[in-house]
Write a protein that binds this DNA or RNA. Sequence first.
DNA 1: CGGCTACTTGACATCTATCAACCGGGGTGG
DNA 2: CCACCCCGGTTGATAGATGTCAAGTAGCCG
Lengths: 227, 227
Amino acid sequence: MPRVSSFFLALFCGEACNPRELAELKRLATPVRFMGGQTIFSEGDLARNAFGLSYGVVRLYRLLPDGRRQVVAFALPGDFLAMPLADRFSFAADAVGEVGVCKFPREQLKLLIQNSPNIMRLLVEFAARELQSAQDQLTLLGNSSAQERVAAFLVNWRKRSARIAPLSQAVPLPMRRQDIADFLGLKLETISRTFAKLEQRDVIRIVPHGVVLTGLEQAELLTGRTE
Amino acid sequence: MPRVSSFFLALFCGEACNPRELAELKRLATPVRFMGGQTIFSEGDLARNAFGLSYGVVRLYRLLPDGRRQVVAFALPGDFLAMPLADRFSFAADAVGEVGVCKFPREQLKLLIQNSPNIMRLLVEFAARELQSAQDQLTLLGNSSAQERVAAFLVNWRKRSARIAPLSQAVPLPMRRQDIADFLGLKLETISRTFAKLEQRDVIRIVPHGVVLTGLEQAELLTGRTE
DNA sequence: CGGCTACTTGACATCTATCAACCGGGGTGG
DNA sequence: CCACCCCGGTTGATAGATGTCAAGTAGCCG
């Protein structure tokens, strides 16, 4: 199991960086572990460090003044937890289960990035991917019923979850119902009820810490609406 | 009125580019005009060109198979209409009223960008801004009532609209109710009703093609919830 | 074994969507 | 120049989905 903390770099850079750049990056990286529930940074914090995820899942979220919460994304290994060029964090991050991150002194990382077209380019591509997935999520929140949201979340999560566990029949759901609710703009009771409905329709089977997407699954899930 | 089509470059680059880079960019740019309602590109199209907005407002949106629509953003002068490094458009764009854009042959622009750290950096910053505003929007759609959404939209639009018209008491709303509805994840009847309610509460005054944010405005608007 | 926390289920309230009618201004054509 | 029509917008009545409040269950850790 490749749980070395600097695994982030391998995932983020792929083949795109030359050994020289990789060595530089590695020099700046400090591996750090967090236990489930621990906060990695908070919204509004000065970003003295940048963080890249090596293993585990991190929820990125915003808190509204009255306590409402929006989970803007679940980060997976290979993701930066925030754009490394920004001076402050515009959302908070905390560990869902145990995680390993690479910590970079941001000023130094910034210099390195600005002198490495390769890395800069990876960063643009990362930003573009994140933007696109934020827009996917917008489209979901703006137009869909609870069933469609949950179904889309499960299908999408199944695809992505290959990055945290060898793909098996069961899709692992390490996060809480409340996290899913805050991600999908629903209440946790609604998540619970929607899971139940999907199970009754034999679309999923609920198992401890996950779900199994049964035969009908994809087609059935994607159409979404009840009738 | 600086309605020259290459105005985009001045806005996008600010002081960040040297004359050499600016000249290169200008060489690639072709000014094009579109009339209200015209389509600039469609979702899924191969991105043979990149587009930067010089004047006017453009709505960026996705269509779902069943005809539902999500407006992901309203672009203003100085914005790229899509990330110029992506091969395909992940959303469609059309003009809200008359607009002027800079058209760039994408392959050539790509080369130029990859050889200009300055421009690359502007691009990262642009992507980061877009990402942040997408996340703001997510937070809005995930947690807010109709009144909060409309209020947040008006306040935000007022700030941004300085870029399309000298700021006056009235906030111009060049887009249709339907566009606002599809942006906020509501139905157009709800937009209409919510406007009416805000007007009754003396928070806004509805005028042709816009609204006036009256005295109480900001504080009142931002708190949102009815009671 | 006991107590905590996550989760599930139920009854009811509320908000927004839906369906439908109506209003009004601008442009066109008679 | 006026009348009509069309489209965008407003308003009303009703229904349906999700939120809210509350009780109850299950699994886990001490």
